Amino acid sequence: MTLELISQARIFDGWQRTYSHQSAATGTTMRFAAYLPPQAEAGPVPVLWFLSGLTCTEDNFTQKAGAQRVAAELGLMLIAPDTSPRGPGVPDDAENAYDFGLGAGFYVDATTTPWSAHYRMRSYIEDELPELVGASLPADMTRQAISGHSMGGHGALTIALRNPGRFRSVSALAPIGSPMNCPWGEKALTGYLGPDRAFWREYDACALIADGARVPELLVDQGAADNFLTSQLKPELLEKACADAAIPLTLRRQEGYDHSYFFIASFIEDHLRYHAEALR
C-alpha cells in the first residue's frame, strides 16, 4: 500500500500535506491530512490523531483549528483522517441528511447492508491507517495520543477505551458523550448496526466504561453555549460514567462558546500541550 501526495504547503517550518491511498478496510480511495513538524526532518516524532465531526473532511481541522503553530513548537505530528468513505458506489443517506452517510461514518464498522461494504471506519482508524502512517511517515508509533470534536470526540473516546495502552493521552472537544442516548447516535447506530442495542455498546464511551474499559484520565472541553449541548452531547453522562469508574476527568465548561471551530481554535493549544506532556 502506497501513499499519493495530493498537496503540500510549508507552514511554521514544517509541512502540511494531504495524502490519498487505496483502503482495504473501506474498499475506496481514502484521504488524510498530515502535519509534519520541523523536528520530523531529524527523525520520528510523536503522533496526535484528531478525528473530526459530522460533515467534515480531512481539511476542516487542518484549515480552521490553527493547530500547526503549536504543533511545530512541540514537535507533534498531526494526523486528521476523513470522516467516511467516499466515491463511486459508496451509499449516502436517501434524503442527503448531514448526520448519516457521507461525512458521518461515526467511526464504526457497519454490519447492515448496504453500509457494511464500505463504512468500516473503525477498522480504518484503529488498524489500517496507523500501520500505513507508521510505515510511510516519520512517526514514532510508540508515542501516540488521540483527540476529536463532536462525532470525532466520540470516536476518540471509544477508540482509546477499546485499545488500552495504545494512546498515552486522550482528549475531546464537545464530544457526543453517549451515542446510545441521543438522536444523532440512535440514528447512526441503528442504521449502521441494526436495532439490537447490545451491539451498540462498543461504540458508546459511557457503556464501554460501565463494561470495564479504562483510560488513565480524560480532558474534555465543552462550550456552555453549544446549541447541541442538552440534546446531543450530554457531557453529564460521561461525567457520571467516569465518576462511577474512578476515571479522572477534567471537564471544562467554557462559558459563551458554541460548537464551531471558533471554539476549537480557542482551546486547541491547551489540548496540544496536554498531549505533548504525556508524549515526552
Score class of each variant (00 low, 15 high):
92 D>Q: 12
104 A>E: 02
79 I>D: 02
130 P>E: 04
72 A>S: 13
101 G>I: 05
131 E>K: 13
124 Y>K: 03
104 A>I: 09
77 M>N: 07
80 A>G: 10
82 D>E: 12
133 V>C: 02
115 W>K: 06
112 T>V: 12
91 P>K: 07
70 V>Q: 12
112 T>P: 03
78 L>V: 10
110 A>W: 00
74 L>P: 04
84 S>Q: 05
94 A>G: 14
124 Y>I: 02
113 T>D: 13
105 G>Y: 06
93 D>C: 12
70 V>F: 08
113 T>P: 01
91 P>G: 03
103 G>Y: 04
77 M>R: 09
114 P>T: 07
85 P>L: 01
74 L>H: 04
72 A>I: 11
80 A>E: 06
123 S>C: 09
107 Y>C: 01
114 P>A: 08
79 I>A: 08
75 G>D: 09
126 E>A: 13
71 A>Q: 09
96 N>Y: 15
120 R>S: 02
71 A>S: 12
73 E>P: 07
82 D>Q: 15
128 E>V: 08
131 E>A: 13
95 E>T: 15
73 E>V: 15
95 E>C: 12
119 Y>T: 00
124 Y>C: 00
79 I>E: 04
98 Y>G: 11
131 E>N: 13
78 L>Q: 08
74 L>F: 09
102 L>P: 02
114 P>E: 05
80 A>P: 02
133 V>I: 15
119 Y>A: 04
95 E>D: 14
76 L>I: 10
86 R>V: 12
89 G>S: 08
71 A>L: 10
92 D>V: 10
70 V>S: 14
105 G>E: 01
70 V>Y: 08
96 N>C: 14
87 G>R: 06
97 A>R: 14
127 D>H: 14
112 T>Q: 14
73 E>K: 13
96 N>E: 13
114 P>C: 09
87 G>C: 08
107 Y>S: 00
97 A>V: 14
124 Y>R: 07
122 R>D: 11
87 G>I: 02
79 I>Y: 04
77 M>C: 15
94 A>D: 13
77 M>H: 09
70 V>T: 15
78 L>I: 15
107 Y>E: 03
119 Y>W: 04
75 G>A: 11
106 F>G: 05
88 P>I: 09
